[in-house]
Computed example of a mutant assay.
Amino acid sequence: MTATDDASVPHLDVDPFALEFFADPFPTHERLREAGPVVYLDKWNVYGVARYAEVYAVLNDPATFCSSRGVGLSDFSKEKPWRPPSLILEADPPAHTRTRTVLSSVLSATVMKQLRGRFAAAAEACVDALLDKRRFDAIEDLAEAYPLSIFPDALGLKPEGREHLLPYASLVFNAFGPPNELRKQAIERSAPHQDYIAEQCQRDNLTPGGIGACIHAHVDSGAITATEAPLLVRSLLSAGLDTTVNGIGAAVYCLARFPDQFEKLRNDPTLARNAFEEAVRFESPVQTFFRTTTRDVELSGASIPEGEKVLMFLAAANRDPRRWEAPDSYDITRRTSGHVGYGSGIHMCVGQLVARLEGEVMMAALARRVAKIEMTGEPKRLFNNTLRGLERLPVEITPA
């Protein structure tokens, strides 16, 4: 059977990597969900799933829907990856299990507990400095500045060259897309960013006692090899920053747009973690990921042959009315558990604990110190093949 033989799979002429789609994806997400549990996108010759149940099923069946052939449109069994594949994101068990265990130990809940005081103090200092300015760009001065002020230090990076970190993360997520202009330009400009990252991930360049050095220490115990260690540090450089920057940006954007929700947060700062989680569900900083079928499979009545790319619309699943009540409203009291903003299953984002900690302490700092967040101009969207975020968000804050 060829990829398009199954009559039960509707064909759609949607390009989920077009700039007009990125500008306002929600009407198309609804169209994708309503067309059927599995659709076929003729533009890129891939299957798509946009409902929560099917996205969740694909994410939680790594034996059938593999990652080792690439989590972007490229199929690594047919073409050479643009960089050495990730040992976490682009790997399957048992190889994935071994490397994931190492990362889980260096980014454990215990480690997060040790970092919490430092991260919270930095969030409060960041908000205090912004209160002095009153008017600022919430992306550059808050969503980017705060994670960049603490995470590279925690990882053990040298101060020089950190300007490469965000462009590198943006490049990685653009590269998961199809061979469009965004991907082409990102890869063409990538050499200096890749060189910096490769160098910084080496053991000698990392501060002793930092998270990066802790990863390299696992070489001594034989858990990973000396070749694998820098690649695992590299995984954190994209996963630990982009999810956090776009998550915090999304949360501030939501609180500025929905002042009633910010008022709720101010009245009860213990909702800080949930305000951040709900923003991740509502805006979905990571919009899509691909998997490749390892065998012929039936999913919700649709037959998908072996070797086919399946595009998961995480953002559409996060607003699926079959799973969420009033999915298009931002509600910080919502029970958000189960959202797929960080994926699900064995490949859940490795940076999620860092993102959640930073997001929570920043929301708490805003709740305690700020009375009002108002937009003072039009936000400008950042276009990326995989990430949804803003390039600019002009705001004014009033002290509490």
Rank of each mutant, 00 (worst) to 15 (best):
R323K: 15
A217W: 00
A18S: 13
S77V: 04
A23L: 09
Q185T: 11
R183G: 01
R392Q: 15
A279I: 10
P37M: 05
R118H: 04
D320E: 14
V354C: 09
F136N: 06
A23F: 02
F176N: 08
M1E: 03
A129F: 07
D92V: 00
S8F: 01
N180M: 06
V350K: 04
A122Y: 00
L41I: 02
Y40W: 14
P10V: 08
E277W: 10
V245I: 15
K184L: 02
A18E: 07
G212D: 11
F313L: 13
P16L: 03
R118K: 03
R281E: 08
E34R: 15
A50I: 01
G177Y: 11
T244K: 07
L311H: 03
T243M: 12
Y168E: 06
S337A: 12
A191I: 13
R257S: 00
P179T: 02
R388M: 02
C254V: 10
A316D: 01
A250H: 13
G177T: 02
A175G: 03
V9Q: 04
A109Y: 11
I150H: 00
H11I: 12
T2E: 12
D5P: 04
F119K: 05
R381Q: 15
W82Q: 09
S108N: 08
E124K: 01
V297E: 02
E283Q: 13
D204L: 05
E181T: 14
K372A: 01
C349H: 10
S74R: 09
G36E: 03
T398V: 01
